[in-house]
């Protein structure tokens, strides 16, 4: 994507309001890459993801996938939503199957098999017939992940998918995601505000500046793969990269211009 900008416009008491959420952002992701996008809350990460997913439009710039301008959602992309986005009236299995159920070229047996397999991958075998409200937040998020995997897209767009998962499960899930990714080589754009996570998973970390979102810097993570075969955190290079990213984020926070109320 090149020079991407997005301004939210709405009316409040008849007065036009606007908020620049993303300001001339440039980011390119090559096929098969795992890119994490890190930035503070409210900097426009979700907005960026929704634009790439084709769920909302943008004002200027361009988003291209394989050379084609994005005009709407497509089967080549699947989203793992920050707020899970599960249908409360459907069972876990039906939720997971849904991306395939709505497609006419996939039989329902195929859809079910694929959904069961992916539920197993995220550790939710045995919960197929439960309804989302019977699951914990972390489990619901994993259903969201299983659903995106079932859609079998080329590009996975993940919005803080492990945000509400406890630390241990999160480690397991991260490893599982890396395994899935190494098997399928999907292109992944992974939004997070967790520094360790950003570095652990990625080929490349894009650091967003606090709103309006802009890519502040990008860092190549040249840690050897597969990363689950050694103690990543003990790797000296991990500490180095982590420190660099942390510096970038801290600079942002410190150099934040004083807000109108303060002056």
């Amino acid at each position: 994507m090149v020079g991407l900008s997005k301004t939210f416009r709405w009316k409040k008491k008849g007065v036009d309001q606007e908020l620049l959420a993303i300001d001339s952002l440039d980011l390119s992701i090559s096929k098969g890459d795992f890119v994490t996008v890190i930035g503070p809350s409210g900097c426009g990460k979700t907005t960026l993801l929704r634009i790439v997913a084709g769920l909302i439009g943008y004002d200027s710039g361009e988003v291209r996938i394989n050379g084609e301008v994005v005009t709407g959602p497509g089967q080549d992309r699947a989203v793992v939503f920050q707020s899970f986005g599960l249908f409360p009236w459907k069972t876990v299995l039906a939720n997971t199957m849904l991306p395939l159920t709505v497609r006419s070229d996939v039989s329902s047996e195929e859809a079910e098999d694929s959904a069961r397999l992916n539920l197993k991958k995220v550790g939710l075998s045995g919960f197929e017939d439960a309804h989302p409200h019977q699951l914990s937040g972390g489990m619901q998020q994993r259903v969201g992940l299983a659903r995106a995997l079932t859609a079998d897209p080329d590009i996975l767009l993940m919005d803080e998918p492990f945000g509400s998962i406890d630390a241990q499960t999160r480690l397991v899930m991260q490893e599982e995601l890396l395994r899935i990714w190494s098997e399928t080589r999907k292109t992944v754009m992974f939004v997070t505000h967790d520094l360790d996570e950003a570095v652990m998973l990625a080929d490349r970390v894009a650091v967003l500046s606090p709103g309006p979102g802009k890519v502040q810097d990008e860092l190549i993570v040249d840690l050897p793969r597969p990363r689950w075969e050694y103690d990543l955190r003990a790797h000296p290079r991990f500490a180095e990269i982590r420190a660099t990213v942390w510096d970038l984020i801290r600079q942002d926070t410190v150099s934040l211009p004083p807000s109108a109320e303060d002056t």
Binding site: R50, A53, G54, L55, G72, P73, G74, Q75, R77, A78, V79, F81, G85, F87, L98, P99, V102, R103, R147, A151
Partner: peptide
């Protein structure tokens, strides 16, 4: 939005 993203 979820529905849109899965092609509905």
């Amino acid at each position: 939005e979820v529905a849109q993203s899965i092609g509905l």
